[in-house]
């Protein structure tokens, strides 16, 4: 069974239809990547999926149940990474995680390899306001895993991370998927995209291209060629043109 099935899902933001008739399947325990230019609708798609925005039209099946009309149920169904810059500065990471899951002994098992890769233990007692952008990003990523869900949505998780942390996180995310987590990530770099199992290329709110396992396998073998190919498609579909 697929973890998520979207059928003709559209999301309106103000006067703009940010996502238009998107249909996709995300199998369980797989890593699904979403890539697109700035303003292509990646964040809107993920936020709508996680109940942070209304689904204007279409259906959204989560483990076979249509939750398109129920934002709360969608919010409960996913672990969602909030923007790092919106984390509350006066709180510590520990206080933040307690709001998501009061049982501290559950945080580490749930986050699994991600917990160690991001070195969260060191950040727990630190006020978020005093953290660097990279540290906040680590906390934001870990917060998505601390809840009870086994389907995690991450919006550009590698932003602001140093190269070591980014590499470790990539490995940890793969390890989580092997352990049974379903992962949906919006991405901007090709190396991370090539780490996914499947994905889509989004442009002007629509799916331009579905990226299958074969294409990603080729991407892992020849990253340079893969990057040029994806970049060309993105350039042709930039909303800023």
């Amino acid at each position: 069974m697929n973890a998520i099935e979207l059928r003709d899902m559209s999301v309106r933001r103000g006067r703009t239809m940010a996502v238009q008739s998107v249909s996709l399947d995300v199998p369980q325990a797989r890593w699904f990547g979403v890539i697109g230019a700035n303003g292509s609708g990646k964040t809107s798609l993920l936020r709508a999926l996680a109940g942070r925005l209304e689904c204007t039209v279409g259906s959204c099946l989560v483990h076979g149940v249509d939750l398109a009309g129920d934002r709360k149920a969608r919010a409960d169904a996913f672990g969602f990474m909030v923007p790092a810059e919106n984390l509350p500065g006066p709180l510590t990471a520990q206080q933040l995680f307690r709001l998501i899951e009061p049982g501290e002994e559950r945080w580490r098992p749930r986050a699994g390899p991600v917990w160690d890769a991001l070195q969260i233990e060191r950040l727990l007692s630190r006020r978020i306001a005093t953290c660097s952008a990279g540290m906040r990003q680590r906390i934001a990523v870990a917060a998505a895993f601390v809840g009870a869900s086994s389907t995690i949505i991450l919006d550009e998780p590698f932003n602001w991370l140093d190269p070591v942390a980014a590499t470790d996180l990539r490995s940890a995310l793969r390890e989580s998927v092997i352990q049974g987590v379903t992962l949906i990530t919006a991405l901007h770099d090709m190396i991370s995209l090539a780490s996914c199992d499947t994905g889509i290329l989004l442009g002007k709110g629509k799916i331009i291209e579905a990226i299958d396992e074969k294409a990603l396998e080729l991407g892992r073998k020849d990253p340079f060629k893969f990057e040029i190919g994806i970049t060309e498609v993105l350039r042709l579909n930039s909303v800023l043109d």
């Binding site: 936020r47 996680a50 109940g51 942070r52 919010a75 919106n86």
Partner: peptide
């Protein structure tokens, strides 16, 4: 509204 869209406590705010 902020809680519902951009916070870790969205689940509670949507209730």
């Amino acid at each position: 509204e902020f809680f519902r869209t951009q916070s870790v406590v969205a689940n509670a705010a949507l209730c």
